[in-house]
């Protein structure tokens, strides 16, 4: 039996999801490839966004993939860490901004 939920080798099998639904799987991968092409944003900028989101989503596959991708593009570890802090700041901000909802509720309910 598999001992862990995540297996690094599974990342290489990602493409296999098309086997159980070819049409949707292929549409997803076409879309994915298109998204990461050079556009108004450079592929390098997109790689850093992907790395930050990989962390906020806490997806070990994506972290692995976009750390490698960043190194291949010559992105430095300092740039990678800076991108992560953007992710962390938004994640932290998103938690805290809900504090306003809490405050509204308390203010409404308390005498």
């Amino acid at each position: 039996m598999q001992k862990t939920y995540y297996d690094p080798a599974d990342l290489k099998k990602f493409g296999k999801i098309t086997e159980w639904n070819e049409e949707l799987g292929n549409k997803f991968f076409d879309y994915y490839a298109k998204v990461f092409e050079e556009g108004k944003l450079t592929a390098r900028e997109k790689s850093l966004i992907a790395l930050a989101v990989a962390h906020t989503e806490q997806c070990p596959y994506c972290i692995d993939a976009y750390t490698q991708d960043g190194l291949q593009r010559g992105i430095t570890k300092e740039e990678m860490m800076e991108a992560l802090h953007v992710g962390a700041a938004i994640k932290g901000g998103a938690t805290l901004v809900h504090g306003v909802q809490m405050m509204n509720k308390v203010n409404k309910l308390e005498m």
């Binding site: 050079e38 592929a43 390098r44 490698q68 190194l71 291949q72 010559g74």
Partner: peptide
């Protein structure tokens, strides 16, 4: 790791 795209 492998090198990235030469042009970029």
């Amino acid at each position: 790791f492998l090198p990235g795209n030469q042009a970029s």
